[in-house]
Structures are given as structure tokens and as C-alpha cells.
Design a protein around this nucleic acid. Structure first.
Lengths: 332, 332
DNA sequence: ATTACTTGTTTAAACGATTAAACAAATTGA
DNA sequence: TCAATTTGTTTAATCGTTTAAACAAGTAAT
């Protein structure tokens, strides 16, 4: 069954499509006769008219669609992001196209292209490693976009992210304040700026107490085979006598908890633990984990806000950093 | 910067847009002169041409987009579904529009309308309670769609789902085969067919051993305030002397595990436990949970396959039920 | 040499909307 | 009464593609 178009309504009522369009969009407010307007609205209702957004988009070059490129949808953090972005977008009558780059630069580029081919009005990006040049190009081409959670500081463009440095510093400080002396850091060898900031925060926490962080207590893992490398790193750090551990992501802590669960070592008595980001898992661990929490809803709304501003005026860009909250529970 | 259009290329090369379109779509294979075709391709490349899918979609009424309405994106099961659908769709050059109905029929209807306004080529739906009539209407209107995971058996249309009856029956049978006599069922009071099937499967497992399931061991909870009602239901069942528990969803078991974790009762010695669907949580519990696993990738691919078939020919519909796998671990 | 294909390309309508500009009729003002 | 204005509506171009049909020029066949 073909959908009804403006033309169908126009024919039925005996007017031009222009008039129908004006009525249905509440344009030319004062000038249209009440009676015709009413008849148009009635038949639109009767024929169950809904505007064809594709046609409208072609004419107006506004598709009311935004593209969301997630880093890796299998990470629960991604679905949390998806949810807040979708909510914020719907609020503003936008629909979200989405895809997951799976931390792969080629997939990232492909998704961005696909979304642009579909004329999205803007993009929200969680870019993987190695796409700094692409971000720069997007900016040069005046494509409205916002980097979310992670970003390339050397490339221009809007950013909504956590203050990762402060968050990591505070998390580490908490461990230090509990009298922990040798704090292991489980991090990624990734070049991503936000992850780097977390390492720096960890170091800063030591420095500001006049301590020198021991580099041998920092494990930097590749993204692959974490199931194997995380437990190994933990064992190694424990053999070096750590009394605290800080995980820079929920992926790491999820695997870590499974391992710690089987170890004779006791949390928090023998070992204090702090993690980044939420995860149901953290609750179930025998010592509910202390973690760094991100104000995601606020961040999502802000991202949409910046995106809309940037659609209006591509020059105007900002970088917003939100403060994290340290949720203190039993593990530290 | 305006994107380059067919017209730009046509002007540059000095031919009509029609010819450019033919070349770029590899139509009229034999008839176009090699040299012109080459020049067109070169300039397309040089000008970085990418086809405007909105315009193409308007003309061809194929947008190469499918709409995915999730039940509730905050459930990890939803993100797993999102992932497999996105993968299957990308494989076939489709892009996925998505939204979460949050188990709310109005939101569901709104999302379906929005997607249809955007002329999606088809829909994949995880419908909430109370939209059977809407499903029926979609079918009557020849909108291509596939119900995924959950469905309305009384409404016509494609279905890709688990064989929930058999899965629940087998899970319960496992508990019975371990000598458990009083098996509690933690379920939803939902009218959703797939959840109902799980209850029936639980009963069937008893019946086929000549046992009569005790109705007082079945807890049917409302979807809200599970954080409160699940622990209460567990306490109640334990007071009734259950020695086995079957949770019909991962949401239930996640909350349950947190509670069981604090109880003096030991799993599996005092209580055997089986859950539906995967969840990292299930691994971390001191007795890794035995659970019902769905072949999601295969299901996602099948869903896309049915959807495409149904776009070709809206009459042709099928209902496919996949068998579950019971992953046996320590909890039962 | 005329007809009949082939080959290579263009014309023009269409998809379903939007919107500036034109138009006709009714109303107002002087 | 006639010009000026207001009111209500239509015309027609446009967005960027696709595609059937028309066309012109060249080649082959009779």
C-alpha cells in the first residue's frame, strides 16, 4: 500500500500541494482560510498522512538525523552512551543512526562515510586509535561533529569528555590516603589521549605527595587477549608487592575481578582496588568496588547541545570536561 | 563546503548527468565509450564524489536502511542484539537506525512511525507488551518486518526467536535430574508470549516426570522495582524450602546474585541455580552460573535474511525457532 | 543507395516535498 | 471611483538522483 503524499491530499481537497504543505507546516499563519485549512487537516488525518522525511530532507537539506559512531558496542559503556545520546536526540526530535567501529580505524572511517552519504545533520564520535587525521579533515570540511568521551587534542573540534586527569589523580589519591604505598596501575598501551591522561593522573597523585611512582608497577596492555594478559599482569604486580590496584577501564576490572576472586589475596585487607566506569560486575564482587563514575546523561545532553550549536555555526567549537565522581565502597 | 553532485562531475567532464549516473552505477555496460567512462570515473574520484543516499532513496524508494526497535537498551541483551543486527546489516550494505522502546508501547509506536517516516526498507522489532494490534496493522499494511526474540503469536508476521519452551523445559529438567525436588521459578507477570513459554517449559519438565509443579513456588514479578521484589521473592521461596531456582531472564538473575551473595545459603550445595541468557555477572558469582545460551549471531543473520525475503515478497513469512544451548557450570 | 541496426549520448520526467514569487479577488482608503 | 493593500491560493523551480525514451551518427546488410 503506497503511503499518502501531499499530492493525494491536494487532489482530494482540490487545492495545490503548496497549500497543503503550508497548512501542515503551519506556515503563512494568517493567510490561509480557516475552512480550507480545516479540510486539509481533516483529510491528512483521514488518509493517515505522514511526511516523507527523505523527500523533505532532500529539499531542506536537514534530515533530522545524527550519526553515532561507538567505539565498541560490546562494551557496556557503549550501550550506556548509546542510550544517553538516543534520549537526548529524541528529546530534540532527532533520530540516531548508529554503528560500532570496534576500535578499528577503517571501520570508523567507513561508518563516518556511510553516515555522511545519508546526509546526517551531525556526528557524535567515539574515535578509536589512529584517526586523528580524519578528525582534522572533518573539521576542515565543516562537518558538524562532537567527539565524545575520547578525543584528539591536536585536532580541532568539539569535545565532551571527562576530566580524566583529575579523575585518575583523585582515584589514586584515595588509595594513597588509605596508606597504600605501592599502587599498581593496569592500563592500556593505547595512544588515546584520554587513556594517557589517566596514566598522568595516577602519576600526579604520587608527585603531589612528594612520591615518585615506580614505573615497574605500571602495566600497559594491548587491547587483545586481555583474558590472558590481565591476570598475568595482576600476578606479576602482586609478586612485586603491590597493596593497591587502579584499573583504568571497566573492561580491565571485569576480567581482573574474575581473577582476584580466585586468588587467596583479600580485598581490601591485602589489596585495595579502584576501577574506572560502572559495571554491574563491580557490585557483585565480594568487596563492592570503589569506582570512578561519569555523569553520562549530562554529558550526552551537552554533546547534543554542542552539536546543534555547531550546525548553526561551524566555527564555534568548545571542549567541555566534566568532573567525575568517586563512588566509595568497600574495595578501597 | 558543498558536497559534489553528479551535476558537478557532468559539467566538469562535459556530459549529461545521466551518463555520469550510468557510469558510476555500471549500468548500460557495453554502450558507454571507454574513454568517457574513464574520464568520468577520474573526475568522480578527483572531486571525491559520494552519492547522496537521500536523493537516491527518494528516486528509487530504497533507502538501504533498516530500523531496529530494541526492547530496552539498558539491558545487556539488547546491546548484544544491536551488535548482531548491525553486523548482519552492514554485511549486506544496510545501515541501522535504532531506538529503544524501554518496554513502553507508546514509545514503540513512536519509533516505528519515525522509522517509517524515514522510509526504512524494513524493521526488526523486539516488541513490548501491548502492541499486538500494531504488529497486526503493520502486516496488513505490508510493511516488511521481523519480530526478534519476542513476538505475538496471534499476529501474523516473520519471527526469529528462541524455542523458549524447550529451553526452559531443559533447564528445569537439569535441576530435576540433579535430584532437586522443589524448584522455584522467578518469572515476570508479563503477558509476553516468550516469557509465558518459559513458564510452560518449567511446568512441562515437571509433568513429563509425573510431577505436579507447586504453583506457590512460582513468583511472577512486575517489571518495576525489581531491586526490591527479586530479593523478597527469593527470601519467600527459600522459606518455602526450595532447593533449586530458575530465573527466566538475565535481569532477574543479576539482581538475584547480588542477593544470594549475601545469604548464608550455599550454591549449589543448598540451592541449585539456572538462569536465562548470558551476562558477565554470571561468571563472577562464586559458583559460576549454569545458563541458557541463545545463538544470537545465527539469529541475527536469519532475521536479516527473512527481512530481505519479505521486502521482495511481503506474503512470504516464516517463523523460525532456534534451539538454545544449556551451558553447564557450577551452579547446577 | 536505402534500410536497419548499433553505439554513444542526451532529454526530460519523476520521486515527494518546500518556498519564493506571481496572481486573482476582495477589501480598504482617499 | 480608482489605486493600493490585503487575503487566499497557485505556479513553478528546486533538492540530487534514476531511467525510459528519444536522438544522432556510424556501421552493416541488401
Amino acid at each position: 500500500m503506497k503511503r499518502t503524499s501531499l499530492k493525494d491530499i491536494a487532489e482530494r481537497v482540490g487545492v495545490s500541494t503548496a497549500l497543503v504543505s503550508y497548512v501542515l507546516n503551519n506556515k503563512k499563519e494568517g493567510r490561509i482560510s480557516k475552512s480550507v485549512a480545516a479540510r486539509i487537516r481533516e483529510t491528512a488525518e483521514a488518509l493517515n498522512y505522514r511526511t516523507n522525511q527523505i523527500a523533505k530532507g532532500l529539499k531542506t537539506s536537514k534530515t533530522m538525523t545524527i550519526g553515532l559512531v561507538l567505539a565498541d558496542i560490546s562494551n557496556p559503556f557503549s550501550s550506556a552512551v548509546a542510550r544517553v545520546i538516543e534520549d537526548a536526540a529524541n528529546e530534540l526530535q532527532y533520530t540516531v543512526l548508529f554503528g560500532s567501529a570496534d576500535e578499528n580505524p577503517d571501520r570508523f572511517r567507513r561508518l563516518v562515510d556511510i553516515f555522511r552519504d545519508r546526509q546526517v545533520d551531525g556526528l557524535i564520535l567515539l574515535p578509536p586509535n589512529g584517526v586523528g587525521e580524519d578528525i582534522r579533515r572533518l573539521y576542515a570540511q565543516r562537518v558538524p561533529f562532537v567527539q565524545f568521551d575520547r578525543y584528539y587534542p591536536a585536532s580541532p573540534g568539539n569535545v565532551v569528555a571527562l576530566d580524566n586527569f583529575a579523575a585518575a589523580r583523585d582515584a589514586t589519591s584515595l588509595l594513597l590516603s588509605k596508606g597504600r604505598q605501592r599502587i599498581g596501575l593496569i592500563a592500556f598501551e593505547s595512544q588515546l589521549y584520554h587513556l594517557h591522561q589517566r596514566k598522568l593522573g595516577y602519576q600526579q597523585a604520587h608527585l603531589q605527595l612528594g612520591l615518585t611512582p615506580d614505573p615497574s608497577l605500571i602495566a600497559e596492555l594491548g587491547v587483545h587477549q586481555l583474558e590472558r594478559t590481565v591476570p598475568a599482569a595482576i600476578d606479576n604486580l602482586i609478586s612485586k608487592g603491590v597493596d593497591g590496584l587502579f584499573f583504568v577501564s571497566n573492561t580491565l576490572s571485569a576480567i581482573a575481578l574474575r581473577h582476584l576472586n580466585q586468588l587467596p589475596i583479600r580485598v581490601p585487607d591485602d589489596l585495595s582496588v579502584v576501577s574506572f566506569d560502572e559495571n554491574e560486575l563491580l557490585d557483585l564482587f565480594y568487596a563492592p568496588l570503589t569506582y570512578v563514575s561519569q555523569p553520562l546523561e549530562a554529558m550526552g545532553q551537552k554533546a547534543l547541545e554542542l552539536l546543534l550549536a555547531c550546525m548553526e555555526n561551524p566555527q564555534q567549537i568548545s571542549r567541555i570536561h566534566f568532573p567525575a565522581t568517586l563512588v566509595k565502597r568497600r574495595s578501597a
